[in-house]
Amino acid sequence: MNPALSKALRRLAVAVFWLMVWQLAAAAVGKELLLPGLEAVLKKLIALASTGAFWRTLARTILRVLTGILSAVVLGVLTGLLTHKSRLARELLSPVMTLLKSTPVASFIILALVWLGRDAVPVFIAGLMVLPVVWANTAAGLAGIDPQLLELASVYRFPRMKTFRRIVWPSVLPHLRAALRSALGLGWKAGIAAEVLTVPPYSIGKSIYEAKLYLETTELFAWTAAVVLLSFLIERVILRLVDGIGRKERAHAES
């Protein structure tokens, strides 16, 4: 059998196995309030998906989280460049980034709620999770640039932009990719946690909060399933995009 197919089949088998475990556990518990079954959750998800509000909710949440993440990526790359160039900036910002990483996200959410409007908190929180990771990886990528290649650029008198595009950026890109791989999920989950606590209108967090309020366990599961699927999809799309940037740069020189 071809290895890709066999790998896909094995994955499918694993998924089926765990879904069966869930189904058996639900049957054993026998109470939808405590642990709804697969079928009930799927039905609920389909029912939700047939309402306009569901899609509007998804769209608004995605917009909030992505706004936060993208701003954090831009800011993280810029601060990475800054701390690479300036020792003072590095000494000033490193402890801040460490602090950001080790402070419980709930503290930030409460604080942000005091400072910002309800709609802005999830944006801010999602970004806050991503920023230190992107910063650290950008800094590592910059520190890892081969000095021999920079000497080459200097001898052949590359303009600054060319050095950046041909040497700096390709050296940083793999680190950025790794940062996104680990930080996207973080930002996504933290953004939704922030929504649960701030309940902005049309948000997945508010829907989860309300499901909990009315003990709608099945609905909670359905929303959670939607979040998991979305997070998976978004990670795929964004990593594809990042790769696309790298490839376009390659294709550019080739054509």
Partner: peptide
């Protein structure tokens, strides 16, 4: 100016 370094670079 062009250079062939001791390594290919």
């Amino acid at each position: 100016i062009a250079a062939v370094f001791q390594e290919p670079r």
